[in-house]
Design a protein around this nucleic acid. Structure first.
Length: 766
DNA sequence: TATTTTGGTCTTTTT
DNA sequence: GACCAAAATA
C-alpha cells in the first residue's frame, strides 16, 4: 500500500516535544474528511484537549475513531506509536486497525491499539518485575482462576457448600474492577463473604498467583495501576509517549479502567472518549455509567459532541428503538434521527409474532430465513440475537435440520474444549515451569499412574521448600518418598519435560506441539478411546497444531489464546449468525431476529431480582441495542410455553413488546393461539394473555396444534389423563374446566383468567 | 488407582 | 437433561 503521508519515520524512542507540537507544514485536509457530516468532522478535528463524543447507535462512532486516528497521523500531530487507542473487545480492535490501515497504510501498525487488557499485558511484559511478575507470566482463564481459588479456600477450611468459590470469585473480581488491591479492601461490599474472611482469602489468592507467576484478567489492569503508582518515572514515560488517547465504548469502562486512563492522560489531557449511555450493558461486570456521566466534571473544559444522525436503520426501526428507550429515566438524552433526510420510505414494519412454544419459534424464524435466502439475501446479513446463551441451542438444531449454514459467536469456544485445554497446558508448562495449574492438569493426562496421592505429596514438598511443582517433582524422585512405580513415571515425565523445554529454542511452536502431543501419549490416548467424540477431539487437536504453525513464538501464541478466547479463523463463508445481544453490540445486519421476548427471559428474571429498577433499565438498553443492530428488518417473537430444564412453563410476553410504538409494528400470531387467526392486525392486545378479562370475546375456537407437532421426531407424550369436562386447578390461573384435550396439551376455560392452552403437568384435578 | 455412581447445579450477559 | 465434582466401589 502506498504511503501518501510519508509517515514511516524510524522510531526515535523519545518524543520530540511532548507539548506544543506544531507540524512544520500542515498537510492539506485529506479527502476522506469530506465524507463526514459536520458533527463527525468536528469530533475528528478537535484533537487538542478533552473531548467526549456521545454517539447514538449507528451514527458512525467507529468511523469517527478511525478517521480521528488517521487524521492525527496525516496531519503529523503524532507518530503512530504516540497514539493510544483503547477498545473494549478484540473484535472492535481488529476492525479499527483494519480500517485505519486502509486509510493511511502500514504506518498504522505501530499505533498502540487494542483492548484494555491486551495493552496492559504489553506494559506488564515490559515492566512487570516491578510488581513481581516475570515477563513470561501466565494469564489464567476463568477455569484456572476458579480452581486456584478453590485450593486457597480449602486451605482455609471454608465450606464450599456454604460459600461457593464462584461467589468469592465474583466478589474479588468486583474489587479488582474497582481498582482495589487487597490492602485497599476495607468496608467494601463483600468483605463479609465466607464469614468475614473474604479479604484474607483475597490476600492468599494473590499470593498464590504470584508464586505461580500468573495473573488473572482483573490483575492485568490492577497491576498496571500499582506499577504506575509505584514508579512515577515509568508512568511518566508512557504519559510522554501517548500524546493522543482515544477510548471506544466509554460507557462500559469500569473504575480500574477509568483510573488507568486518568493516570496515562493526566499530563497532556488529549483524551477523546466515545460512548453511548443508552448502550451501557455491562454494569454487572463492574462498568460504571458514572464514568461517562462525570466526564464533564473531570474535564470542565471538555468539548462535547453529540452524534445523532443515524445512517444505519430505516425510520421505522429508529422510531421503534427510540420509543422503547424513552421508557428509561436515567439518560443523558439523545434523539436518533435518520441521516438520510428527505427519505420518505419508512421501511418495513417490525414484525412481532407470538408462537406456541420454543421449537415453533425456531421453525418460524428459520422459515423466514429460508424465504429470505430464496430471494437472494446474503446469509451473512442475517442474525439471531438472544438474551442468554442457552437459547441458542434451539436455533442451532433447527438450522442444522434445514441445512442452513450458521455460525455461533461466543458459543462453545474452541480454546475451552477439554482436549485443547490439555494441549495448551502442556505448552504452558514448557513455556513457564512455575505454572502449577498446568502441571496439575496434565501430570496424569494421559494416565501415568500419578494420582491424587502422588500429587498431594509433590504439593506438600513444593510448599515446604517454596518451589514450583516441577522443581518439587525433580527433588522428590531423588528420594524414597514415592513408590517405585510412581517414581519411575514421574521421572519419565520430568525427563520428557526437560527435553521439550530444551527444544523450545530450536523448534517452531507448531512442530513442538505436534511432537509433544505425540510423545506424551496424548494422541494415543484419544485414538484408543472408542467413545463417539474421540474422532472429533483428534480433529480439534489437528486443527490446533496447524493453527499453531502461524506463530513463531510459543509465548506469543499463548498470550493470544488467553486474551482472545475465540478461534478467529474460518469465518468467511456465507452463514447466519447466532449470538447473544451482548456480543452483538457494535455489529450491524440487514435482518435481525429477536426471539424470546418473554417476561423472566427478557427482561431476565435474575437480573431484575438482584438489581431491580436499575437492572430493568439495563435490560431495556439491551433491547435497544438489539433493535438498532438492524438496517432493514426486525422480527420479534415470543412463545407461550417454554421448556425449562425438564419442565414446561407458560410464559407472558415481555413488557418491552408493549413499549414498541404500535404504528411501527405488525402483529401476527399463530392460528388459534391468540384468537386473531387470519391476520387482523390493528389491535395490539394479545387476548387471553395480557388481559384475561377480555379473553372470551372474539376468541376463535383454537385449531389443533398437531400440525406443527407432527414434524417432530420426538415420541409423543402419553395421552393426558384429563378429560373434557374435568374441573382442574392451575397455580397461576386458578380453577377452570377442561374444554379440549390434545395429547398433553389441554385447553381450559379458567373461571378468572379466561380460556388458555396449558400442559397437563401444570394442572391438578380440582 | 481407576471406574462407576450419585448428587448438585446449571441458564445472564465477557475481557 | 446434561455436566461436573465428589463419593463410593472395584
Amino acid at each position: 500500500m502506498s504511503d501518501p503521508f510519508e509517515l514511516i519515520d524510524e522510531p526515535d524512542g523519545e518524543p520530540v516535544a511532548a507539548r506544543g507540537f506544531v507540524p512544520a507544514a500542515p498537510a492539506p485536509p485529506p479527502a476522506w474528511l469530506d465524507k463526514l457530516n459536520p458533527e463527525q468532522r468536528a469530533a475528528v478535528e478537535a484533537t487538542e484537549g478533552p473531548v467526549l463524543v456521545l454517539s447514538g447507535a449507528g451514527t458512525g462512532k467507529t468511523r469517527v475513531l478511525v478517521t480521528r486516528v488517521s487524521y492525527i497521523l496525516s496531519q503529523r500531530l503524532a507518530k503512530p506509536w504516540q497514539i493510544l487507542a483503547v477498545t473494549f473487545t478484540n473484535r472492535a480492535a481488529r476492525e479499527m486497525r483494519e480500517r485505519v490501515l486502509a486509510l493511511v497504510g502500514p504506518v498504522a501498525e505501530a499505533v498502540w491499539l487494542g483492548t484494555f487488557h491486551a495493552l496492559s499485558v504489553r506494559i506488564l511484559r515490559r515492566h512487570g518485575e516491578v510488581i513481581g511478575l516475570k515477563s513470561n507470566f501466565t494469564i489464567l482463564d476463568s477455569d484456572d482462576q476458579l480452581r486456584l481459588l478453590k485450593q486457597v479456600m480449602e486451605v482455609d477450611d471454608i465450606d464450599p457448600k456454604k460459600w461457593p468459590a464462584q461467589g468469592l470469585m465474583g466478589v474479588i473480581q468486583r474489587w479488582k474492577d474497582r481498582g482495589l488491591t487487597p490492602e485497599k479492601v476495607s468496608r467494601e461490599t463483600g468483605v463479609d463473604y465466607a464469614g468475614g474472611r473474604a479479604q484474607a482469602l483475597y490476600v492468599a489468592y494473590q499470593e498464590r498467583l504470584r508464586t505461580l507467576n500468573a495473573a488473572d484478567f482483573g490483575d492485568l489492569l490492577l497491576h498496571c495501576l500499582t506499577l504506575f503508582q509505584a514508579r512515577p518515572d515509568i508512568l511518566g514515560e508512557y504519559q510522554n509517549q501517548f500524546r493522543y488517547v482515544l477510548v471506544d465504548e466509554y460507557q462500559d469502562s469500569n473504575v480500574a479502567q477509568y483510573l488507568w486512563l486518568r493516570l496515562l492522560t493526566q499530563a497532556n489531557r488529549n483524551i477523546c472518549c466515545v460512548g453511548d449511555d443508552d448502550q451501557s450493558i455491562y454494569s454487572w461486570r463492574g462498568a460504571e455509567v458514572g464514568n461517562i456521566l462525570r466526564f464533564e466534571k473531570d474535564y470542565p473544559d471538555a468539548t462535547i459532541i453529540k452524534l445523532e444522525r443515524n445512517y444505519r436503520s430505516t425510520p421505522t426501526i429508529l422510531a421503534a428503538a427510540s420509543h422503547l428507550i424513552a421508557h428509561n429515566e436515567a439518560r443523558l438524552g439523545k434523539t436518533l434521527r435518520s441521516g438520510h433526510e428527505g427519505n420518505t420510505d419508512p421501511g418495513a414494519p417490525i414484525r412481532v409474532r407470538g408462537v406456541w412454544d420454543g421449537p415453533e419459534e425456531a421453525r418460524w424464524i428459520v422459515d423466514e430465513i429460508e424465504s429470505l435466502q430464496r430471494s437472494k439475501h446474503d446469509l451473512n446479513q442475517i442474525a439471531i440475537l438472544v438474551r442468554a446463551g442457552f437459547q441458542m441451542l434451539e436455533f442451532e438444531e433447527r438450522l442444522i435440520t434445514t441445512g442452513i449454514p450458521y455460525r455461533v459467536v461466543g458459543g462453545p469456544r474452541f480454546y475451552e474444549r477439554m482436549e485443547i485445554r490439555d494441549a495448551i497446558a502442556y505448552l504452558r508448562l514448557i513455556n513457564q515451569p512455575e505454572d502449577g495449574l498446568a502441571f496439575e492438569r496434565i501430570i496424569n493426562t494421559p494416565k501415568r499412574g500419578l494420582g491424587d496421592s502422588t500429587v498431594q505429596k509433590i504439593h506438600q514438598l513444593g510448599r515446604a521448600l517454596g518451589v514450583s511443582l516441577v522443581e518439587a517433582s525433580l527433588r522428590i524422585i531423588e528420594t524414597d518418598e514415592l513408590r517405585p512405580q510412581a517414581r519411575a513415571a514421574l521421572r519419565g515425565f520430568c525427563t520428557d519435560l526437560a527435553r521439550w523445554q530444551s527444544l523450545r529454542e530450536t523448534t517452531s511452536p507448531g512442530d513442538l506441539a505436534g511432537m509433544v502431543l505425540e510423545e506424551c501419549g496424548y494422541i494415543d490416548m484419544w485414538q484408543k478411546d472408542k467413545t463417539a467424540e474421540a474422532p472429533g477431539r483428534l480433529d480439534n487437536l489437528r486443527e490446533f497444531v496447524s493453527g499453531l504453525a502461524e506463530w513463531d513464538t510459543l509465548s506469543g501464541f499463548l498470550e493470544h489464546v488467553s486474551l482472545v478466547m475465540e478461534n478467529d479463523a474460518a469465518n468467511a463463508e456465507d452463514a447466519v449468525t447466532v449470538m447473544t445481544l451482548h456480543s452483538a453490540k457494535g455489529l450491524e445486519f440487514d435482518t435481525v431476529f429477536l426471539p424470546g421476548w418473554e417476561e423472566d427471559i427478557f427482561p431476565n428474571r435474575r437480573s431484575l431480582d438482584e438489581n431491580g429498577q436499575k437492572a430493568l433499565e439495563e435490560e431495556r438498553r439491551l433491547a435497544y441495542v438489539g433493535i438498532t443492530r438492524a438496517r432493514a428488518r426486525v422480527f420479534v417473537s415470543f412463545a407461550a410455553n417454554r421448556r425449562v430444564y425438564n419442565q414446561w412453563q407458560s410464559s407472558i410476553p415481555s413488557r418491552f413488546i408493549d413499549e414498541l410504538p404500535k404504528n411501527a409494528i405488525q402483529q401476527e400470531s399463530e392460528a388459534g393461539l391468540y384468537g386473531n387467526a387470519g391476520g387482523g392486525s390493528g389491535s395490539f392486545d394479545f387476548p387471553g394473555f395480557r388481559d384475561p378479562s377480555r379473553a372470551g370475546s372474539g376468541v376463535r375456537r383454537p385449531t389443533k396444534m398437531i400440525e406443527a407437532e407432527s414434524w417432530e421426531s420426538k415420541p409423543r407424550t402419553s395421552a393426558s389423563s384429563f378429560q373434557v369436562g374435568d374441573r382442574v386447578f392451575h397455580d397461576k390461573f386458578g380453577y377452570g374446566r377442561v374444554e379440549a384435550v390434545d395429547d398433553s396439551k389441554l385447553e381450559i376455560a379458567f373461571d378468572k383468567s379466561g380460556r388458555k392452552k396449558v400442559l397437563d403437568s401444570f394442572v391438578q384435578p380440582a
